[in-house]
Design a protein around this nucleic acid. Structure first.
Lengths: 168, 168
DNA sequence: GCCATATCGTTCGGTTCCAAACTATCGCTC
DNA sequence: GAGCGATAGTTTGGAACCGAACGATATGGC
């Protein structure tokens, strides 16, 4: 009992010390909150998407993204596909292999440059993404339902400024 | 050459088909762009943070987050720490073990309930996070440097609305 | 033509992460 | 006070992911 109180006292003292320590320095809390909220929102979105939408189709976030990009852009070289999906090329190789084994995409080595490989949707891949995407888009709408249209566009624009500054 | 043109033609035709297919349905592009930009921004931020800031201290994003949370909040039970770090509790176990082996945090089984475990910073963990955090915060500022203060607060608020709706 | 260099995709080793199964402990009920 | 749900942390199995090293192919200079 006395032990437990002592623990609590120590904890409170610790917290005061720590807050004082943080207060000492002119940290940039506005930047901190933007960055940490971006990360937390992304993690929440991904977990929920995989559980509530993609699990029904046995797709991971990355697998879905690959199908989506191939759907929008058509046949693509591996390097471009990796860039578009925002994945390391080594990561992409494995995931494309998985999708290929499941018959959703196919690889083809280019005739004029044998180093290059293109990836494209199979018929089954096409029907899959056509099936998944409406559900995924409904999920996206639900996730952002507390924002009105202007706010969504604002958020997208602010994020775009962060992304493009640091990718280009 | 004719082969290459044929490929290009096929690709263009594919793209037209696909765009037409997308155009057929009333998809919610505003929601789509918010969600995909959140995810892409988060991935960019994490990769750069790990490479440019955390690698010097041999910390992963998750490891850094644990140290940071313990710094701010002091000694915490495992379950609360997992929630605060936005990690599955099983994930936390492994990462705390790693940090413990490196002498940055320590575990203690609670006396009044032997199931519970508290985690806290060691002295070395404290000096580490005191050393890392200013650099990390500078990195956060750099990542969001194209946003002015109002825009940062706006972005943080919009993201908070997405997070809280779907975590609470 | 031939070697040096650059550029593809893949492979490899390691970490992060989750969900589900498991173990140990607690608290409640009879 | 013995059993039986509930709860806390750990273990397990597997996927995703990165960076670096690798092998194969193309290209340019000599």
């Amino acid at each position: 009992m006395a032990d437990s109180n002592q623990q609590t006292d120590e904890m409170l003292a610790n917290e005061r010390d720590i807050r004082a320590r943080l207060g000492d320095h002119p940290f940039d809390f506005d930047s901190l909150h933007v960055i940490s909220n971006i990360y937390r929102a992304a993690a929440t979105i991904r977990r929920r998407a995989e559980r509530e939408v993609l699990a029904d189709y046995n797709l991971s976030w990355g697998g879905f993204t690959i199908l989506w990009v191939l759907w929008i852009w058509g046949e693509m070289e591996t390097a471009n596909l990796a860039a578009e999906c925002d994945l390391a090329k080594g990561t992409l190789t494995g995931m494309v292999s998985t999708l290929e084994q499941r018959g959703l995409v196919e690889r083809e080595r280019m005739a004029n440059d044998r180093r290059r490989v293109t990836v494209s949707l199979t018929d089954e891949g096409l029907t899959t993404i056509e099936d998944v995407f409406p559900n995924f888009n409904a999920f996206e709408a639900e996730m952002s339902a507390d924002l009105d249209t202007d706010e969504k566009r604002m958020a997208a624009e602010l994020l775009r400024r962060i992304i493009t500054r640091h990718e280009g």
